[in-house]
């Protein structure tokens, strides 16, 4: 009984310690996870598989890029991307296609918006993208989860 009372009396200091530590550690925005799966620059018509890059192994387990096709349509490079989910629940994704010219220089950098894509359980879905100008001869693409803050205290 004596011991219990002692413990009770020493609590204000523990409180203050906890409070301070929470203030130091907490109240901090954790940057969201923005990595995903994608490719490096692919020249039109080339086999895509050797260009695949996985930056987010967790996402790569739930999703794979099953096909990438490209062709010239009215002088403009058109890309057809097939995504397959291996996860039973809906995946909320975003994808972006970037364009490069013959010399590997970016065509209209920063102007290709992230597009949102809902991939339902085990679904295979195809999305298309068209180069903004005829200069674009190579492309790269990237798929990521909708970035959400893990913890925000």
């Amino acid at each position: 009984m004596q011991k219990l009372t002692q413990g009770y009396h020493s609590q204000p200091s523990i409180f203050i310690l906890l409070f301070i530590s929470l203030f130091i550690v907490g109240c901090k925005n954790v940057p969201p996870v923005t990595s995903g799966v994608g490719t490096s620059q692919i020249t039109a018509g080339e086999e895509y598989s050797k260009y695949l890059q996985v930056h987010n192994p967790k996402l790569a387990k739930q999703l794979y890029i099953s096909d990438i096709k490209s062709r010239l349509q009215q002088d403009l490079l058109e890309v057809n991307l097939t995504l397959t989910s291996t996860y039973k629940k809906t995946l909320q994704l975003q994808y972006q296609v970037n364009w490069f010219d013959n010399d590997g220089f970016a065509v209209e950098p920063g102007k290709s918006p992230w597009k949102s894509l809902d991939l339902h359980g085990m679904q295979t879905q195809t999305v298309k993208a068209l180069a903004p100008t005829a200069k674009a001869t190579t492309f790269s693409l990237y798929v990521r989860e909708v970035p959400e803050k893990a913890f925000k205290f």
């Binding site: 609590q11 523990i14 409180f15 906890l18 409070f19 929470l22 203030f23 907490g26 109240c27 975003q94 972006q96 920063g110 102007k111 290709s112 918006p113 992230w114 597009k115 949102s116 909708v146 925000k152 205290f153």
Partner: peptide, 27 residues
């Protein structure tokens, strides 16, 4: 202490206003 921590976690800290540049292409 457990109650204190959970209370803090639930109520959350008040955020200071912070200005950042964002990605114009982001969703």
């Amino acid at each position: 202490p457990a109650v204190a921590i959970s209370l803090l976690a639930i109520s959350g800290c008040t955020n200071k206003s912070v200005v950042r540049y964002g990605d114009a292409a982001a969703v």
